[in-house]
Amino acid sequence: MKEKLRSTINKVLPPLAALLLIFLAWYCICAFGSVPKYMLPSPGDVLAAFQKDWQLMLSHARVTLAETFIGLFFGILTGFLMAVIMDKISLVRKMLYPLIVISQTIPTIAIAPLLVIWLGYQMLPKIILIVLVVFFPIAISLLEGFASVDADTVNLMRTMGASDIQIFRYVKLPNSLGQFFSSLKISVSYAVVSAVVSEWIGGTEGLGCYMTRVRKSFSSDKMFAVIILISVLSLLLIWLTHIIQHACMPWDKINQKRRNQ
């Protein structure tokens, strides 16, 4: 326990110290420098902006989070189904895999306006954008997880008379959970960013819209505040994913400990 505490401190302390130094530098530049406030607000200004606008920000955050969660849900679902089909039917994999990889070179910010033209200013184009962003890492990681299953283990399952569905359920799926969660952590932060970007393009609600408004009025303090809020939301979601991962993979902790020994 003591050891664990020490290792946590060892991990947390250095970046925390660096962060403090950055804040200090930022504060000094604002206090003693001649940077105008509309270009670089001081930490105090940002805090004040938070205090003033937090209710408004939270109501916008609710919309952004709703889009994020719905987009994540359908993105994971699409990615999962895609992976299962590509794993099962190798022709489909051969046809789609290269296309999916190439499709990732298209920047999301470029499709966002198109989606708005096609689908309007409501939630739908935003959700679609998140789905497009999320499904790729999920599908690829699951597909790799399914394919990395030990052939001998599959053979052993066959000698026990297991069906394809049973092999999937008892071997392939749990075997790919680790990779799935690693990519989910990436997807979660992508999803938040995509939601914000899609709100820039069009819409009336959400943190992205709020950002556009405060940018137009040169309220840099509010801009900083909302950027920090978005980061915090992403971090919280990643942390939530981490918690879910531990709940879903109780063996992971033990196996990791063994590996470290």
Binding site: D150, D152, T153, N155, L156, R158, T159, M160, G161, A162, Y170, V171, P174, N175, L177, M249, W251, N255
Partner: peptide
């Protein structure tokens, strides 16, 4: 398959099951 008990060279215990 599915008629005879078979134990392979490695123990083949699934790491994610107790």
């Amino acid at each position: 398959s599915g008629k005879i008990s078979y134990m392979l060279q490695k123990d083949m215990l699934l790491p994610f099951r107790t």
